[in-house]
């Protein structure tokens, strides 16, 4: 196989230069001070690799992680005006659901490679092409070398590469593997606010930053994506629902 990447300069010195946090990276803020303030670069660095994994192997946590990424990509797509490329070997994403997190079908191109190797190649090709505003990839196995390469091309093209690390089995933590990702996240679904009437409130997620360059790990509860992909901080717990819920009552006319 003849590839152009063999010739990439991979000296330690070079790695060091690109690994050093630089203030003038382009940043994608979440727009939530509570979250942005705790991130080293006050948001996500645009030209970087970010990894997200579900807290547990349950499908609901996986769905929360999926939508967390979709929201980031949606905001970036709205900002940059390019399509989002979603690369996954599986095919169970439900597009209407993604659209409700702000990532409409008009902004989304799907690629379904046969295996992880092809998947990584597609991601690299796509980022190098420079068209997409973000690339999301669902990967279960990814070597350190691969993450490093993706981080490099992402930085080069100034395009976010968002990796959904899927679990290969129940006990394995995908974030236990080493990675050159800029940030690493763990997402789980959390109980929503109880409404006074029959119904389910806005989604809530347990969002955990497991690792970030130049910053601390932390964890917090956030409300899930709205229709523009924005997260929110839950309102302080109150008794709004109990007070005002329920039907209005009148004296008989």
């Amino acid at each position: 196989m003849i590839t152009a990447f063999e010739s990439l300069p991979t000296t330690i010195a070079h790695l060091r230069t690109i690994a050093t946090p630089v203030v003038d990276h382009r940043i994608m803020p979440f727009g939530i001070p509570a979250l942005d303030d705790r991130l080293a670069s006050r948001g996500l660095r645009a030209g970087a690799l970010h990894e997200v994994a579900a807290q547990s192997c349950s499908m609901v946590d996986d769905a929360a992680a999926t939508l967390f990424l979709a929201g980031i990509a949606a905001r970036e797509a709205a900002h940059a005006g390019g399509p989002v490329l979603w690369v996954s070997c599986r095919n169970d994403l439900y597009a209407p659901g993604l659209e409700q997190a702000g990532l409409s079908s008009a902004d989304l191109i799907h690629a379904q490679p046969r295996d992880d190797a092809a998947l990584l190649a597609v991601v690299e090709d796509a980022v190098r092409d420079g068209t997409p505003s973000a690339v999301i990839a669902e990967v279960s196995r990814m070597s350190m070398v691969a993450t490093r390469r993706l981080q490099l091309v992402a930085a080069d093209a100034d395009i976010p590469v968002l990796i959904l690390r899927r679990r290969r089995n129940r006990d394995q933590d995908p974030l236990a593997e080493p990675s050159a990702a800029w940030t690493r996240w763990r997402i789980a679904s959390a109980s929503s606010e109880r409404l006074g009437v029959a119904g389910v409130g806005r989604s809530r997620w347990q969002v955990e930053v497991a690792r970030q360059r130049g910053g601390e790990a932390f964890s917090m509860i956030l409300e899930g994506c709205d229709e523009t992909g924005c997260l929110a901080v839950p309102a302080a717990l109150g008794h709004r629902a109990a007070e005002t819920a329920g039907p209005a009552r009148y004296a008989a006319a």
């Binding site: 409404l195 006074g196 009437v197 029959a198 119904g199 819920a245 329920g246 039907p247 209005a248």
Partner: peptide, 8 residues
């Protein structure tokens, strides 16, 4: 149910 409640 939420809609009807809000309308009411």
């Amino acid at each position: 149910a939420v809609r009807i409640d809000a309308l009411a």
